[in-house]
Design a protein around this nucleic acid. Sequence first.
DNA 1: CGCACGCTTGATGCTGCTCAATTTGTGTGG
DNA 2: CCACACAAATTGAGCAGCATCAAGCGTGCG
Lengths: 229, 229
Amino acid sequence: MRHEDTSAVRELRAFRTLDESTFTWLSGVSFVQSFPAGMTIHNQGQDADFLFINLAGTVELATRHGDTEGAVAMLGVGRLFPLASVVLDTQSLYFARTTNACRIAMIPAPIIRESMDRSPDFTRALLDELARENLEHVREINNQKLRGSIERLANWLLAAAAEQGPQIKLPYSKRTLASLLGMSPENLSRTLVQIRNHGVEVHGAQFKVNDPEQLRGVAKPTKLIDLVA
Amino acid sequence: MRHEDTSAVRELRAFRTLDESTFTWLSGVSFVQSFPAGMTIHNQGQDADFLFINLAGTVELATRHGDTEGAVAMLGVGRLFPLASVVLDTQSLYFARTTNACRIAMIPAPIIRESMDRSPDFTRALLDELARENLEHVREINNQKLRGSIERLANWLLAAAAEQGPQIKLPYSKRTLASLLGMSPENLSRTLVQIRNHGVEVHGAQFKVNDPEQLRGVAKPTKLIDLVA
DNA sequence: CGCACGCTTGATGCTGCTCAATTTGTGTGG
DNA sequence: CCACACAAATTGAGCAGCATCAAGCGTGCG
């Protein structure tokens, strides 16, 4: 593990409180790997041998069942997976796949569990991490069950605008966005056409939110579902 | 808190490892309440002031958004809620409602957090609990996204048959079952008619699985979604 | 006996998916 | 720099799944 990667991991909430000696031990047996877009990092049904940490890019967590596939979550930089399976030492319920070029740190699962035994603070930090993940899952369930596709898109745009400002540059393919929003690519196209009537300009991978208020009228954001209510 | 309730809590995975003194302290400031069917135990958006433990009955966790409502999970005996919100000291994303008569233990949230500080083992036990909950959420997401309503019903029947044997007695109303399976009550009726062609007898609230193999053919259970694959 | 509630059944419509045909965009090699 | 090939995105047509609305049963309880 290179120094810059080590310090990136060190600054994550989960590892910040870990004592120095345990951390150097842990980072000594870990390594970092780069993946191109579309690579599978680990498979569903596989034992959780490693805890992965996303250091760059976006990772998609999804499950395949028969010939259909469903996204579970999209992970940005600094996110861990599959944490629950590592904690319980069970197989992973989903596979992980890069949506673009990614740098991924890999820590052997037994090391994680051993570190928890050594450091109560680390255990506590992971508890927080898992709790956050938990709320996110609930948010996602609500987002899927309680909203239609236009609303989901509208809320995604609001969240993106809160980060990037009114000029939004799509960080991944529309195909990926569709999967993230839980709809088919075709449907996203149509929905992007519809949303033009509600204060949004669409030019390829560039969106512009002209009338945030009108968009909020469609999105109806809530603090129970969205981080930016 | 009466003695029988105390010992019931004591035997749960989460509290088994807690040291005696902390546990008596904790149970001293906790109490138990009985609720009739259809009662709301706590509301969405409310601060998580208590950790609730279901000691009898079935609790529904759900979220309301506008005029629609979506079930997040159904909790049997021995389950805790809203654990993630208690850990992070944030408001709950869902409300909890009894589907039938329930006994619920209530532990003040600060007591839980204080207990974690006192006992690393307790923290570790809660981590396990939260990890399990996490996997359950993922299973639920997959169940909803990857299967149609007939499949979901078929899998529910298989799970019920694994518990009760081929003769199944519905533990709550069909309305509740429908919500649990993520469909409208009307649709559940129709789906119950359809499932007769696949080895199941339906008589009111009594189901009988005559041909488990045929039913499995419809359900296509997986260990990635169902506990009983 | 009759009212109320839960369940069923039927008719209809919407939402989003699938399949297929173009169009646009992107990168590669001549 | 252009031409070509391939992937991504759009567009249209048709359909499946499920919800909604509305009406009809059945059972249990006052």
